[in-house]
């Protein structure tokens, strides 16, 4: 348990003891653990002297934060307007069907999390997907699985 705690403390220590740092710390949790662990929020609440309920409110409000672990690979389908017009719904459906997972869900084997994101600002390359933060543009339903397989090597 101590080891677990120090894991959180290492992140907390990077920032000033100010409420301004709360969101950044929760985001670092997310990056490090692929989710925001409850113990991490408890520790943060203790160190900063803020109620746990406030951290829970933040963790559920901000889309970048998740209370359940995400898969090893995250696939983000951009569903911004330009991508929507250029076929993002078909890309999303294809992925839901092929990966057997619904949007914002994680595959049973914990391999992939499928998410939607509202515009990644790469509209000129629509429709866009991000596989572990790597951008792929001009996607087509028939090719999108190959792109993912090629990148993650499975």
């Amino acid at each position: 348990m101590t080891q677990e705690l120090s894991k959180f403390d290492r992140i907390i220590e990077r920032y000033e003891r100010s409420e301004e740092s709360l969101l950044a710390i929760l985001q670092d949790y997310q990056r490090e653990f692929q989710y925001v662990p409850e113990e991490g929020m408890r520790r943060l609440s203790e160190v900063m002297g803020v109620p746990l309920s406030k951290l829970y409110a933040m963790a559920t409000f901000y889309k970048a934060l998740s209370l359940v672990p995400r898969g090893r690979h995250t696939i983000k389908v951009c569903t911004g307007t330009a991508c929507h017009l250029k076929g993002a719904p078909q890309i999303l459906e294809t992925l839901e069907r092929e990966l057997r997972v619904k949007r914002n869900g994680t595959t049973e084997d914990g391999e992939f999390t499928l998410e939607c994101v509202n515009c990644v600002g790469a509209c000129a390359m629509a429709p866009v997907i991000l596989v572990d933060e790597v951008y792929h543009g001009q996607n087509r339903p028939s090719k999108v699985m190959d792109i993912i397989k090629k990148q993650v090597g499975s």
Binding site: T79, A82, C83, N118, C119, G121, C123
Partner: peptide
């Protein structure tokens, strides 16, 4: 916090 989908000048 450029949130409007379809706009990316601020990012640029």
């Amino acid at each position: 916090d450029e949130g409007d989908p379809g706009a990316f000048m601020d990012r640029s």
